[in-house]
Amino acid sequence: MSIITAKEHELSTQTMAQVYAETITKLMEENKDIMELEADLGACIMGGKMDEIDKYPGQLINCGIQEANMIGTACGLSAAGKIPFAHSFAPFIARRANDQIFISGCYSDANVKLIGSDPGIMAAYNGGTHMPFEDVAALRAFPALTIMEPTDGVMLKSLIRQLAEKKGMYYVRCARKAVAKIYEEGSEFEIGKANVIKNGTDVTIIAAGIMVAEALKAAQILEEDGISARVVDMFTIKPLDEEMVCKCAEETGAIVTAENHSIYNGLGSAVCEVIAENIPVPVEKVGVQDVFGEVGDMEYLKKRFHLTAADIVIKAKAAAARKRG
């Protein structure tokens, strides 16, 4: 693992969907056993590649609107030696095909890479029905499932390429829109190992997905107020990098978690479990407060669900103030 952080965190010119589509089609060209399954949301992530579906016979498959069968079929394909990636919007993967992921997938030792797009507020104008604040929660207690949330396009490309080589069940909750650039090309990521992307001594912000960029903004504001905040990108939510969590608790004495997900049974809960059992220090959670989603633009939704840098600053100050001595 060796990361190069970007100096400016501007929006990438390429969308995450474009990065995924480019990476997976390249992989399919390199290895005929790699497949990409869609449940009629192909154009949403594969874009124009769906119009070239005939260029990938036996590899790019549109199953129709039937997520449960798509996941089951993917598990069967993997049993017969194929390497299927299966995509839908995150709620339709995690909620609708939940038992298929458990029984046909995890319990059966299948080798399927699940791509759940538009996690949390990324669903924007599709609104509450499509806005999963609970996808990680719905899957986190499944043994044999790795859960990840790529932070930007550089990481997404690296993770998808790694997954093509790895056996097992993986769930990737993945933005489709352009997101802030956090890493430079050439960065390497190790699944299960968190990245420290800014050093600090007074408090650690452990974030994932779009909240990493907010955490970096928050750290800058905190710096101006005399608080030194460390920022950790916890892109693997399960298995959690427990060693990193404990190290940060010990060295900074206070933790803030930040996630585009419910505060229940997501990143924040996972961090709290580790902290409570190993090294109790104050923890404050930034996340969605047990409510349903709604339509809106990203800026509105960030404010509506308290997912801004300002929200992280408030919680970081609260956590730092709770430190003993």
Partner: peptide, 15 residues
């Protein structure tokens, strides 16, 4: 769930 898995295996064998 079995028929979906069977369909996946059958598809792989056809390919």
């Amino acid at each position: 769930q079995g028929l979906s898995v069977a369909a996946g295996i059958a598809l792989a064998k056809k390919i």
